[in-house]
């Protein structure tokens, strides 16, 4: 199984290059920290939500999906701000966090992993004289992202099997097959990469 958050589309945002989107994300992150006027913050949040849902064509449902996991933390932080600072600070901090996540999600959903990797390679190339291999780092990150859902799937499969055997509370019954399958998958993936000509990637730089 392969992780992939990119959602294909032909919106203006999709067509922007990855370096432009990532730069804008960094600039916006810094700018948001400086905003301390509540109406400006509300305007920025609404604009970001509009760009995400309408301009990028990702829709309000996905905007909600990107926001939902945050809510409990935002609520917690807002309560703390309200209690220790002011109500205005609570609103500012909450909107800042939510907007930042929307911007990050917007970049993730509209940029291919390979484009992100190319940016990473360009950034890491600065360290090439120090012996750093940017392609290898970028590929390592891409592989890590690709393997996350694989790990979850293996854990889910093994949990289902052990549950069927009445062993869901046994850590050994979970750990051993999960580890075995992970090692086997890693071995198969390694074979596949060698077969596709990647064994000497590092040496070719």
């Amino acid at each position: 199984m392969i992780a992939g958050l990119y959602l294909p589309g032909d919106s203006v945002i999709h067509q922007l290059s990855a370096p432009v989107k990532l730069s804008l994300m960094v600039v916006m992150g810094l700018a948001l920290v400086l905003v301390d006027h509540i109406f400006v913050m509300v305007s920025v949040a609404i604009t970001t939500g509009f760009v995400f849902s309408v301009l990028a064509g990702l829709g309000f449902a996905r905007l909600w999906l990107a926001t939902r996991p945050l809510l409990i933390w935002v609520l917690f932080i807002a309560l703390a701000q309200f209690w220790f600072v002011t109500a205005e600070a609570a609103v500012l901090v909450s909107l800042r966090l939510v907007t930042l996540v929307w911007v990050a999600a917007l970049v993730t959903y509209t940029t291919r992993l390979s484009e992100m990797s190319d940016v990473l390679v360009a950034i890491c190339s600065v360290f090439r004289p120090l012996g750093v291999n940017p392609e290898r780092i970028s590929f390592l990150i891409a592989l890590t992202i690709r393997l996350i859902p694989s790990v979850f799937e293996i854990v889910r499969d093994v949990r289902d099997v052990q549950k069927a055997r009445g062993l869901e509370r046994s850590y050994t019954a979970m750990f051993v097959p999960v580890l075995t399958r992970l090692l086997r998958e890693a071995d198969a993936l390694s074979d596949a990469l060698v077969a596709r000509g990647f064994e000497r990637w590092g040496d070719q730089q």
Partner: peptide, 17 residues
């Protein structure tokens, strides 16, 4: 080399990538 399980062979998230 084409393997038995394509999940082990496909690395990137999208087909074109």
């Amino acid at each position: 080399f084409l393997f038995q399980n394509p999940d082990n062979q496909i690395v990137m998230p999208t087909v074109a990538e």
